[in-house]
């Protein structure tokens, strides 16, 4: 009975913390983050290459780099981030309720999420799409030959709906094998419980890379859906949204302009190219317009590198996952990345 005091302790400290947090709720998200000294960033509960903690508990990944870049721009410290793991169910409430300031959790930008759920997607950091993987032995070269196949599919995701649309529009039938997580899907697929595994193409590549014999499995060329993944913030705080949007744009523009984490300090001394000067704050006052100082982009790039560096380090061809740039190349290389001008 005496132990009920434990609840008391917890409840009271929890409430006290709650009131303290409520007091700081003025000056918008930027003011809150600066007062707190840390960015609360929502990430996945683990997705290869995009977000995962290493053995020391340091979060790493492509989405994590977005969080770190924003923290570096706002707080001058890429490690001043509280990573909040969110599931597919909890991510939007966590953002809407203010538990997190920024959600960088490979979330597909859709109309209803942007408009109805009242969020603000600040850009796209990865263009993904749903694909299929089959064992090479099956001798299938195209997804259109999959009539009657058994398909492993994660339940409750848009992939499930896309799959149904694709098969019915092509007048084919399939038998779904519902699985809960990607890890379970790998087991089922390798055990032969299904002929086909379908999920986002980046996920397929990551899964295939872990197989004993990756060459025995092929990812089919068809991509059956558009999955533009990007970070998002709450509606209604446009200053904060601008900071997140332009931090992401700065990383993309930095790659286009040839600014890397290695040469950013040198280039910040001033260059012939006025756009680089404006980006790095040696010319103009773009940072001040955001409510930050003029070195903001310089810090973000120094912290995580430009878009291409982050891509290569986490998910690129030389990493364990081995994704090619594809749609995620700069527009100058035939991809879709196109940062608006910094002026």
């Amino acid at each position: 009975m005496k132990k009920s005091v434990f609840l008391g302790t917890l409840a009271v400290t929890g409430l006290a913390a709650g009131f303290a947090a409520a007091d700081a709720h003025s000056g918008g998200t930027l003011g809150e983050v600066q007062a707190r000294g840390a960015l609360n960033c929502g990430v996945t509960t683990g997705l290869v290459g995009f977000a995962a903690p290493d053995a020391n508990g340091e979060w790493q990944g492509f989405d994590v780099d977005v969080c770190r870049a924003v923290a570096a721009a706002v707080l001058d410290d890429p490690s001043a981030v509280n990573f909040v793991p969110t599931t597919g169910q909890t991510r939007f409430t966590a953002l809407a309720s203010g538990e997190i300031d920024l959600l960088a959790r490979n979330t597909t930008w859709t109309f209803s999420r942007d408009v109805d759920l009242r969020f603000e997607f600040v850009g796209i950091n990865y263009y993904d799409g749903q694909g299929f993987m089959v064992p090479r032995d099956l001798g299938v070269a195209s997804a259109l030959e999959l009539d009657g196949a058994t398909v492993c599919i994660q339940t409750g995701t848009t992939t499930e709906l896309n799959l149904a649309d694709f098969f019915s529009s092509n007048n084919m039938s399939y038998e779904p094998v519902p699985v809960e997580t990607n890890a379970e899907a790998q087991q089922q697929y390798l055990a032969g419980a299904c002929d086909v595994y379908t999920t986002d193409a980046s996920g397929l590549a990551a899964t295939r890379a872990t197989f004993e014999d990756p060459a025995a499995h092929v990812v089919l060329p068809e991509i059956i859906s558009k999955e533009p993944l990007g970070p998002l913030v709450r509606h209604g705080d446009n200053e904060w949204g601008d900071i997140a949007r332009w931090t992401l744009n700065a990383l993309i523009a930095a790659e286009e302009l040839g600014v890397t984490s290695a040469n950013v300090a040198e280039l910040a001394g001033g260059t012939e190219n006025p756009e680089i000067n404006r980006l790095l704050g040696t010319e103009g006052a773009l940072g001040e317009m955001l409510g930050l100082d003029n070195d903001w982009a310089q810090r973000a790039i120094a912290a995580v590198g430009n878009y291409g560096e982050s891509f290569e380090r986490n998910i690129g061809e030389n990493s364990a996952i081995g994704l090619s740039r594809g749609l995620n190349a700069q527009w100058t290389d035939g991809g879709l990345l196109y940062a608006p001008p910094f002026r």
């Binding site: 996945t44 683990g46 290869v48 977000a51 890890a183 790998q186 087991q187 890379a209 872990t210 990493s319």
Partner: peptide, 13 residues
């Protein structure tokens, strides 16, 4: 899940 999401240990079950 988090451990499986690292590129070192992805595929372990």
């Amino acid at each position: 899940n988090l451990i499986r999401a690292t590129s070192e240990w992805n595929g372990i079950y």
